[in-house]
Each structure stands twice: as structure tokens, then as C-alpha cells.
Design a protein around this nucleic acid. Structure first.
Length: 440
RNA sequence: GGGCUCGUAGUGAAGAGGCCUAUCACGCCUCCCUGUCACGGAGGAGAUCGCCGGUUCAAAUCCGGUCGGGCCCGCCA
């Protein structure tokens, strides 16, 4: 019966059977070492028998093997355990030489991204690549855990839509039985409608943007962690997002030590409570950045990427946090969406914040305007037509009782990208889609 | 969409007018090797230098075009 590589130490002295992929061979003549990889790790097998060694002649990395032999304690073996006097069975022979080596770190230089991504089915077998996506899975798990603890209900909204109504991003259009459908650019309206149902909802959903962006942090398809909650104010909303980041960072730090070590990641610096995550206004950041770099962005109603990187470094050095909430967004600006809520005391300011983490904008959160009449006004002011049938479901939810509410869209891949210090978001995506890439 | 940049064996790199019949490392093949773990040693195969055209006695190298990447900016998650 098969056991996993990770359980070998518990079987010392016994005959055990493992199955997996041939990951690496080191032949020393009468003494041959092979590494066998399964889902739990990599085991060393010592082959001395000539006949057994001969079974591997011509077998390439990736050959699927069943190996049974005596589990032996040996300080010289990695992990202190290896399999001796094995009986090998080739379950699936691989005789073609793989296009890429997977037993050592694969180049992540931007010039070589194509090789990394074109060969995804193989490059993902590399343990360092696997680590990225274990961290991503753990991050998702941490999100779900956080949402469960805070009584959010998980939802799923349609990605095939009749037309684009939210505005802002370009949408993909496709033929839908003779009509035109669009791919969802966000779950915004649906999660707001669901606030009227469950108060607190979240969704981990694919999001499609037809923006011709060519940067290290944009893709045409990515995963958004959407959350929306009712009966909350702006300060509370920010603190929930901050708590969420802290609990994710803590869980990943605790549960992914081996994976983080593979990428030489230092522990994340975050305060122990969300109210201690710095809040800086756009104006403050423009001014500090100007002072520090002599580069002037004052007066602009958004941050430049260089400012985002800089302010996170600044906060790390001076404020004990690698995360920063950017507040003080002007409501007279194209960054203001019609469903955003203006501050009651100062309507020139939107109740909106961006969460920057390790130099990248990972989340945008805002309070939503929950008053029907004001929403319709803002929609008109934004050039929208309330009569457009696309708004009907949302307006219906508003008309029949929407509490004060707010929420966020949180980029999963960007979060993992910065947690692992990766240069390009595509490195943190299994099968990325961007302006140039539709395969594999 | 704008600007800048890069395409050399399967992979990663060097070569920047003639020393190139293109170099190195990894991988692959053959042989040697009983404690390797980036094993080591000996030998071998593998590249019309992205493609098309031009300049030149001579082009991987210079020029133009083209195709395919990347980075930055705009925009955003």
C-alpha cells in the first residue's frame, strides 16, 4: 500500500511503498541515488542493484514510478531517511527529454518569462514554483477563514452579463446566441444586492478587464476577493480590511514557512491591530514624496506607481508597517464612482481607501452611497442613465431598503506576488491571461 | 495606446564588423565511479545566431522592415 514521502520517517525499519515522479538522478556507478517526488515532498532512494538501476536506463525526469523498499534512517540522507534495496516499477515511462529542468530554481528574469509560462505544465512541477501556489491556496484559505469568523456568507455571481454598467474598465464582448454578452468586470452590483439579503457577503471570483495594460501588475483575467458588508461605517470598514490583511499574513507566515523559505522571504512587518496600520492622505503622500525625491505629483488625484512603492518603504522604515491605507480621495475626480459615498462633513472627500501592501495597490475599498435618491443623482452626474435596464436590479435593491454599507475588491494574485517578492503578477498566476497571452 | 528595450543549441548565458568552422554552464547520449544531494571524471551529439531585405571584400555583430517578448508610463485589483 502506498504511503506518502512525508510519512517515511514514521516507517523506519519497515518495508514501505511510495509512488511519484522521478525528480532527479545521481548515478555514482554501483551506488545510485534518485529522488522521487509526490504531493507531500521528495524522497531519496538508494539503488545498488544493477538490474534495478538498469530499469531506469533512458527514463527521463517525470517518469512515474512505484518504489518499495526498506525505510532506513541515515544521517547522510536529506531529511535523515531514505529507501534501501528498492524494487522499482515504471508505471509510466517518459523517454522524451523535457524542455526544461525542474529540479532547480527556474529563471524568473522578465526576459525569460515566456519560457516559464509557455512550459507551465512542467515548470509548475518545480518545488519553488509549487510554493507560490501553495501560498496562494493558503491565502485563499485564510480569506475564507476570516470571512467565516466574521459571519460573511459566500456567494457566486454570474460572469456572463447583458451589458457593462459599472463603468471604468473596458469589457470583453462575446456572441451570446445572436445577442452581445459581456464578461463581468466586477461583482460590484451583485454583492451590493446581496447585502440586502445577508448583510455580509464575499466572493472569490474571476474578473475580466479588456484594458490594454502591459505592466507587471495587470492581467485581463484575475481573481478578486470581493467583500461587502452592511451596517458599518468607513472607519470600521477600514479596520475590517486591516484585520483581514493581518490574519492572512499571520496564517501564511505560520503555515507556509517552508514555502517562504524557498523564496527567502523575511517576516512581514505589520502592526498587531488594524487601527495601527497607517492612514495617509493622497495629499500627504504627494508632499512627503516630493520632499524625499524632488519628484512632484502634488495636485494629482491618484498616486503614481513610484509613490506607491515609496510610501510603503517609508511606512516600513518609520511607521512599523508594510501596509498603508491611502485616504482622502477627492470626490470630484474620475476615481470617484457613482456608487461611492461622499463624506458627510466634507463632501469633497470620498469615503474610499486604497490598501497598499509592499508597494502595490492590492485593495480598493469604499463606503457605498446607500440612499436611493442620492445614488440616482450621482449616477446621472457620472453620465449614467438610471433608466438603463442594466441598473434596474441594483436600483430595485436600493429602493426597497439598503442599509449603510461598504466593501472591497481585493486582488488575490497581487497579494501573493508581493508576499513572495515576485516582480510580475504573472509569476503568481498558474495560467495567466494578458494582452498578449491566451495560452496555455 | 505612448516611450524604451531584448530575441544566439532543449534551458540559461558570453560574443558587439574578420581571431566564429560561434564560446561556456546545465540538460541529453556513451563510458568510469559505493554516500551523492548543483556529485565528480573522460568523450560525444545538438545552433541555417527570430524572420526578410540592405550596407560591406567580409554580418550573430551595422542599417531598414517584420514577427515575438519584456520594462516603464497611462489605467487599475
Amino acid at each position: 500500500m502506498r504511503i506518502l514521502v512525508k510519512d517515511l520517517p514514521a516507517s523506519i525499519g519497515q518495508v514501505a511503498e511510495i509512488s511519484g515522479w522521478l525528480h532527479k538522478q545521481r548515478k555514482l556507478g554501483g551506488l545510485n541515488f534518485i529522488n522521487v517526488r509526490d504531493r507531500s515532498g521528495i524522497a531519496q532512494v538508494l539503488i545498488q542493484d544493477k538490474g534495478q538501476a538498469e530499469l531506469l536506463r533512458g527514463m527521463q525526469i517525470g517518469t512515474v514510478l512505484k518504489v518499495s523498499g526498506e525505510v532506513t534512517k541515515d544521517e547522510r540522507a536529506p531529511g535523515g531517511v531514505e529507501i534501501h534495496e528498492p524494487k522499482l516499477e515504471v508505471l509510466v515511462p517518459v523517454t522524451d527529454v523535457p524542455p526544461i529542468e525542474i529540479d532547480k530554481p527556474i529563471s524568473h528574469r522578465s526576459d525569460n518569462l515566456d519560457t516559464l509560462l509557455d512550459n507551465r505544465p512542467l515548470t509548475l512541477r518545480n518545488t519553488q514554483e509549487q510554493a507560490i501556489f501553495k501560498v496562494q491556496a493558503k491565502t485563499l484559505e485564510a480569506f475564507r477563514e476570516f470571512f467565516a469568523e466574521n459571519e460573511f456568507t459566500e456567494m457566486n455571481s454570474p460572469k456572463l452579463l447583458a451589458e457593462a454598467t459599472e463603468g471604468g474598465a473596458e469589457t470583453f464582448k462575446l456572441d451570446y446566441f445572436g445577442k452581445t454578452a459581456t464578461l463581468a468586470q466586477s461583482a460590484q452590483f451583485y454583492k451590493q444586492m446581496m447585502v440586502g439579503v445577508f448583510e455580509r457577503v464575499f466572493e472569490t471570483n474571476p474578473t475580466y478587464r479588456a484594458e490594454p495594460s502591459a505592466t507587471t501588475r495587470h492581467m485581463t483575467e484575475y481573481i478578486t476577493i470581493d467583500a461587502e458588508m452592511g451596517f458599518i461605517n468607513f472607519e470600521e470598514l477600514i479596520n475590517v480590511a486591516g484585520s483581514c490583511l493581518i490574519s492572512i499574513a499571520n496564517k501564511v507566515t505560520k503555515d507556509c514557512q517552508a514555502e517562504l523559505a524557498l523564496w527567502n522571504i523575511q517576516p512581514t512587518l505589520l502592526p498587531d491591530s488594524p487601527d495601527k496600520i497607517p492612514r495617509l492622505t493622497i495629499t500627504e503622500i504627494h508632499e512627503k514624496f516630493l520632499e524625499a525625491t524632488k519628484e512632484d505629483h502634488t495636485g494629482e488625484d491618484d498616486l503614481a506607481p513610484a509613490e506607491e512603492r515609496w510610501v510603503c518603504e517609508y511606512a516600513k522604515e518609520n511607521l512599523g508597517s508594510e501596509a498603508v491605507f491611502v485616504v482622502g480621495w477627492p470626490s470630484q475626480s474620475k476615481t470617484f464612482k457613482f456608487y461611492h459615498r461622499k463624506n458627510n462633513e466634507d463632501p469633497a472627500i470620498a469615503e474610499r481607501a486604497d490598501l497598499l501592501f509592499k508597494g502595490v495597490e492590492i485593495t480598493t475599498l469604499s463606503m457605498r452611497e446607500n440612499r436611493y435618491d442620492v445614488l440616482v443623482e450621482q449616477l446621472k452626474a457620472n453620465g449614467g442613465e438610471p433608466e438603463n435596464p442594466g441598473y434596474a436590479p441594483l436600483l430595485s435593491a436600493y429602493k426597497y431598503g439598503m442599509p449603510p454599507h461598504g466593501g472591497w475588491g481585493w486582488g488575490l494574485e497581487r497579494t501573493v506576488q508581493v508576499m513572495l517578492g515576485l516582480n510580475n503578477i504573472k509569476e503568481a498566476t498558474l495560467f495567466p491571461r494578458d494582452i498578449n497571452r491566451l495560452t496555455p
